[in-house]
């Protein structure tokens, strides 16, 4: 039986990873709210962010802030391209929902394979943003990276909140999420909003990826677990609810950490996926349902 220290330690790690899931979950919500589409390739943005940053650091010896500032817009650009080349044409043709989901899934596989061809199949990591650590509180170790994750996570959520409440574009996006036809009638360029939502969501994923890479090595196929976990986080939070997604992410991260202690690291994804199924079956509109029911 694991002792208390081990348990608390895993909770600390769980919160860190959970925040990452929360960020990915918010990414799902941003696109879903703007378009009604769930982008199954969301996890690939996390992988791309971490991978791009790692390549910039390793091959070009750039300092981390510069690598960060190049990697995030790069992934946002990939998000834009995905919207323009894959989602938009299907949207315009009125393709069925499942076809769009399938196309985003195919895009994910395609990006993964291209990553194998251009980088390699190996997992990659880079050092923590602040060297040294971990911070010791009694027997519990808190890696410095965790503070970066919490700090950047809070910053991102704060910026998003400002964006959605204080800027014209953010308000327009929210209008689209409430009623697309009405928004269009009010002169909001719904198409441009869709484009914006993909770029924003990809950038969010990229930041999450860069934050998490020092703690968990990223390989070409690391995207799927993050994508699925982010989706679970979004569902727990009641799809489309950003704050709920963040809370859902932390809950899921902690659950996974507990599962690792009890079952061993190998089965953490099985635990997360099983949790997904249970949430879907039992709470299809999220654990915090009633705030903004949007299940279908």
């Amino acid at each position: 039986m694991p002792d208390a220290v081990q348990f608390i330690q895993s909770l600390v790690n769980g919160v860190g990873v959970g925040l990452i899931y929360g960020l990915v979950g918010i990414g799902f919500c941003v696109i879903y709210n703007a378009s009604g589409i769930v982008n199954f390739a969301q996890g690939v943005f996390v992988m791309l962010g971490g991978m791009a940053c790692e390549v910039l650091l390793r091959k070009f010896h750039l300092p981390l802030p510069i690598a960060f500032l190049i990697a995030v817009p790069f992934v946002a650009l990939v998000g834009l391209l995905m919207e323009v080349l894959v989602v938009r044409p299907m949207w315009n043709r009125g393709s069925p929902l499942f076809a769009i989901i399938l196309a985003t899934l195919a895009t994910q596989i395609m990006i993964e394979r291209i990553t194998i061809l251009t980088v390699d199949e190996q997992p990659h990591t880079f050092q923590e943003f602040t060297l040294g650590g971990p911070l010791k509180i009694g027997a519990i170790a808190i890696p410095y990276q965790l503070f970066w994750i919490v700090g950047c996570g809070a910053l991102m959520v704060g910026l998003l909140w400002l964006f959605f409440t204080r800027t014209r574009a953010g308000r327009a996006l929210r209008a689209c999420s409430q009623n697309r036809e009405a928004a269009a009638l009010l002169g909001i360029p719904v198409g441009a909003m869709l484009l914006l939502s993909f770029a924003l969501s990809a950038a969010l994923g990229a930041v999450a990826g860069i934050l998490v890479t020092p703690m968990q090595a990223i390989a070409f196929n690391s995207g799927t677990p993050f994508g699925v976990s982010g989706f679970i986080a979004a569902i727990i939070g009641g799809f489309g609810n950003a704050a709920g997604a963040l809370a859902g992410g932390i809950l899921l991260g902690v659950l996974q950490a507990v599962a690792i202690v009890l079952l061993g690291a190998g089965f953490k994804n099985v635990a997360a996926l099983t949790a997904l199924l249970f949430v879907l079956f039992l709470f299809p509109s999220g654990l915090f349902a009633g705030l903004k029911p949007k299940a279908h």
Binding site: V38, F40, L97, F98, I101, L105, V228, F231, I235, F239, L273, L276, L277, L280, P284, A295, H296
Partner: peptide, 9 residues
């Protein structure tokens, strides 16, 4: 979406 994600899971 839920059916799609559940089966994918």
């Amino acid at each position: 979406h839920y059916l799609a994600m559940a089966t994918f899971a």
